[in-house]
Design a protein around this nucleic acid. Structure first.
Lengths: 207, 207
DNA sequence: GCAAATTAATGATTTATTCAAG
DNA sequence: CTTGAATAAATCATTAATTTGC
């Protein structure tokens, strides 16, 4: 209609920044007065009208909600799929033991249950030839094991191992590869759920 | 070395889903035993090795942290920019009143402060001709005002208004446009900070 | 629509840091 | 204080997504 502005509002980075900050601080649905003030302030950074601010908050809130919904839906879907296809999959779990409800996460054979275990099934580790492995990693890291002897003669290692050099010593990563399926049947039922980082809790790293 | 797999692991959707779910549930740094079990389970869905699982958790955790850091940095930056360029900008605020520290969020002229106001500066609203506006929106919605009479004769509205029809009543959006800068100087100092959604609190929408 | 080109994600590796034991 | 194990951070490299010109 009006010949002056046929193009839609394009927020400047500063305008966006300020709007986002206001939103983040809890302003979700500004009233007329608030919109006015915001508009006045933002107009310093570029052409802007009250309706732009109004629409921005409307859209932003709506899209926030939408994002949240999608996230929750995804989570539910994942959980569902997990239960359907993995935890009680007969290929993995001894059928004789699967008398649990498909929704019971406490079932001892669930992968979650197994992974919360503190007991190491040592016999699983050396499924592929390896007299080298002296001990199971004690509640600590990976299948990285440092041996002075390895550094000098890497050729006599099992082919599924991976050697890396850290300055003056070496690291071996054992390949537990794709051939271990039959090994996971005799897993013991061990502990309940406290999956929360059994080794060390570093959710909040010190920065 | 080995001729079979020169290409990097490419997780199947199921594998990814399971890894993500485990991570989401709190497993951040699986130990050797856990990696083994996960690998065994995931191998049902496609070729996979222990190191893949190990690396996946390493990377995922690191990138999570990184994302979080970036988010926090952005927030701080926004806050900073806000303070520098908006709140105490001399173009906006009466210089006679700005004897506050640039970091003092309690300063009465800050936009945050102003926006947390419950007191409506009614004289700002009808800066552009409008005998139509009977009242300031009371702590409620937008400058949306429902009037049966408006619906029938939209032609006599000020050109800077925008009419929309919601079912059986109408909405008007007043354009407070880019010309209001001088209007924001006489704003009163009003209230302290509780910006948290003065009208309605919908941070966690009911889904 | 499609295929080259560009960009973003992410798997894999290397380097730096932390921390506890001796 | 030194050393070694464990982890975090930085980086490299390849694959997936996206854009762009035809």
């Amino acid at each position: 209609m009006s010949p002056s502005s046929n193009t839609r509002w394009c927020p400047t980075p500063e305008q966006l920044m300020i709007l986002e900050e206001l939103y983040r601080r809890g302003l979700k649905t500004p009233n007329a007065s608030q919109i006015q003030k915001i508009t006045a302030h933002l107009s310093f950074y570029g052409k802007i009208q009250g309706k732009n601010v109004f629409y921005w908050f409307q859209n932003h809130k709506a899209r926030d909600r939408q994002k949240l919904r999608k996230k929750l839906a995804k989570q539910l879907h994942q959980q569902h799929l997990l239960q359907q296809h993995l935890i009680y999959n007969q290929q993995f779990i001894d059928p004789a033991q699967t008398q649990y409800s498909a929704l019971d996460f406490q079932a001892p054979n669930s992968v979650f249950h197994q992974l919360s275990s503190n007991c190491y099934n040592a016999h699983n580790l050396h499924a592929q030839g390896s007299g080298n492995i002296s001990e199971e990693a004690p509640e600590g890291l990976m299948m990285m094991m440092r041996h002075e002897s390895w550094r000098s003669s890497p050729s006599d290692l099992p082919k599924d191992c991976l050697i890396r050099t850290y300055g003056h010593d070496s690291t071996m990563i054992m390949d537990v590869g794709p051939t271990l399926i039959p090994c996971c049947r005799p897993l013991q039922t061990l502990e309940l759920f406290p999956l929360r980082s059994s080794s060390n809790d570093d959710e909040k790293p010190v920065i």
